[in-house]
Nucleic acid binder design. Structure first.
Lengths: 212, 212, 212, 212
DNA sequence: TTATAAACGAGACGGTACGTCCTGTCTTTTA
DNA sequence: TAAAAGACAGGACGTACCGTCTCGTTTATAA
């Protein structure tokens, strides 16, 4: 893998004549892939099944994505809904609410479970962590980072707060609990954990360096 | 799955006659499974390959473990080395050192990567989170919990410290970073992250409730 | 194969001490073998199935018969009913009746089909033709041969009649038809064919040599 | 079995798209099957071995023939050489020569033994007797039937001769002897038996009915 | 317009692994 | 010391997908 997994998209390299690739087929494949991922999991996710569900020949899939891994990544990224924060005027509350909403949805919905399957799969992560970061995670972290900055500016978090560490702590802790206990992530549990971590961050000494 | 995945001998149920199962075969299978997991990853981990590497017939594997999932879990659990903490007299330092040693090894060694593959696989975690917890994770958490209690007793951490939350925060944060960045976990990075989180925990107000 | 396939029977070789072989087991195995042969055919005839049906361990079968071939032969031979001719005073009629009765039973009953499976299996026949002849076929041919001799003595068949050829012609023709058409052998069809061949034999010139 | 065992292309049914089946693969499989049948016998005849010998994937075999039985039948039928009679002007001699040549070859050559294995296997015969007859045996019987008709026309055999019975008698007798004695069928033995039976048939009274 | 080039669905190709069944051998306990 | 029970290494079974490769058809651009 070269860092850019799919030989798809672009659209600009319409080199010479011939029938162009069908946008309908592409959409149907991605949709079918996401549904299959959500219902079967990544382990039982087969190109054969995706092609069949999309009503498409197998080579039509391979023409676009060289392996089921690339396909799965693309499906999740392209079809994921954007992350949007409320704006109540209280950034810390907004952050807390966002987390409490995000994590349950991420660990239970079809697309969310598909994404978690990809993020937590060791083979995927070795090859696609950077790609996933650039095309998916970074933009979502930016939302959280902005809320944290606003909270610092509003005096709700100390000036020395490391936003990256705080993001990883909140998401990492909840995810880790989900992984190791297998219990579903409820809004309440996610909110409580976020609260506890934010409380710790808020109590950090102003002059101290929490930085890593 | 019934919570105890393998029908692999409590050893006591030698009900009636018949040749007993070969302990050598069992050991060879587990060893081969662990090596295969480490070198190939869980995705390309096949019972066929394990049986061949162990010099054993395929049915001999199936007799003990009904699927590759059960086999992989068992191999990791049974062959994992115990978690042992130093005792320098400073529990916080011991904890920091343990984390700085544990995580790099966990995310790079053969057995460690196999374990991470299992813990982070969504299908595994759904079926085996409880089993993994009881047979593997709980005993290891206990070591960390003990160190935290000692640190609280020594006044290094405030009395209200929630040990479970602290453990999840440290392990979760580092694991999450590893998963989302794909970068190897170095001793230094793990140590720094542990330091930062422990500093936050140490700075928490004594009378406040960090509890969840 | 040594000509005497089974290390069984005898009963006299109770050489040294120890638990004697169970006659019940032996009988149960032979009976189970015959039933299995009749219902499944020689192709799907497995030692495993025979042992299970007989309520016996697999090694108990192997201890007596080294392969399923030996077992099948033994089962057919030991459990086959004797061939008994009527005696109406007319040897040709007796012969005709015997054939008309024998062949349908041979090609439809459990034991009969088992025997046919053995006789007509090319691998069996190569290894066991002599053994089968000595222990089974020869004694049955003798009955037919006696009837033919009586018919010759009674002037119903010419003096030059070759009894062996006549037997092979009658049995061979009917068997061959059964094999190549797959149609069940009825009493009527067997009788008609026997009649036609006996008529040919009866019409042979007295002084001529039919001999082979 | 539907009477036509293989879904193996009348060749005309190229209904809808898709890569057509490889004629090379088909030929290689049939050839390999015939060789394996001849050298191993039907009992040890495995699809696995055939596929390997043909240099073909196992599913490629199963795609054409649902079981080893269908494959074996097809291999024998499709690759069998045609039966061709001499024409010396004396039909009875031609018939006698044909039999004396045919039977030894049938019971000793690779393809011949394969065919005998199929014809004499009780499971095969129950399912494929009609199919074998229509696609193989009938055309070969026609050659013999023609010779017999010529012999009748030439006065060498009586007018009432039943050609079917005569064919079954000759082939059945020789085959039966081969099966029950296990001795190889020599030209001489086959010729002598044919002579004896033809002599009986020739001596039948002209006005009598030998018919069945 | 008419080639031409490429995508399309369909499906066969050589393979690999699956999980099951049976083979013939070997232990172990029970009688 | 044989019997029953059952595990052993091995190997074939028939199935499901893999990723690649023809096919015959369809569809746009380029000549």
């Amino acid at each position: 893998v070269t860092g850019r997994p799919a030989a798809t998209a672009g659209g600009n390299t319409r080199s010479r004549g011939g029938r162009p690739r069908s946008a309908e087929a592409e959409q149907a494949i991605l949709q079918a892939a996401l549904e299959t991922l959500g219902s079967e999991g990544y382990g039982s996710f087969s190109i054969e099944a995706v092609a069949a569900r999309a009503g498409v020949g197998r080579p039509t899939v391979y023409r676009r994505w060289p392996s089921k891994l690339e396909l799965a990544v693309e499906a999740v990224i392209r079809l994921a809904p954007p992350l949007i924060a409320n704006d109540t005027g209280n950034p810390l509350t907004d952050l807390r609410t966002l987390i409490a909403d995000l994590l349950p949805e991420l660990t239970s919905s079809a697309g969310g479970r598909a994404l978690m399957a990809l993020v937590t799969d060791p083979e995927v992560h070795a090859q696609f962590a950077r790609y996933l970061g650039e095309h998916y995670l970074d933009s979502r972290r930016a939302v959280l980072r902005r809320l944290i900055s606003q909270a610092v500016a509003a005096g709700q978090l100390p000036p020395g707060t490391d936003p990256e560490l705080l993001i990883d702590m909140i998401l990492g802790t909840i995810t880790y609990r989900w992984l190791t206990t297998g219990m579903p992530v409820t809004r309440q549990a996610a909110g409580q954990t976020a609260d506890a971590i934010l409380a710790l961050a808020a109590a950090a000494p102003t002059d101290g360096q929490t930085a890593q």
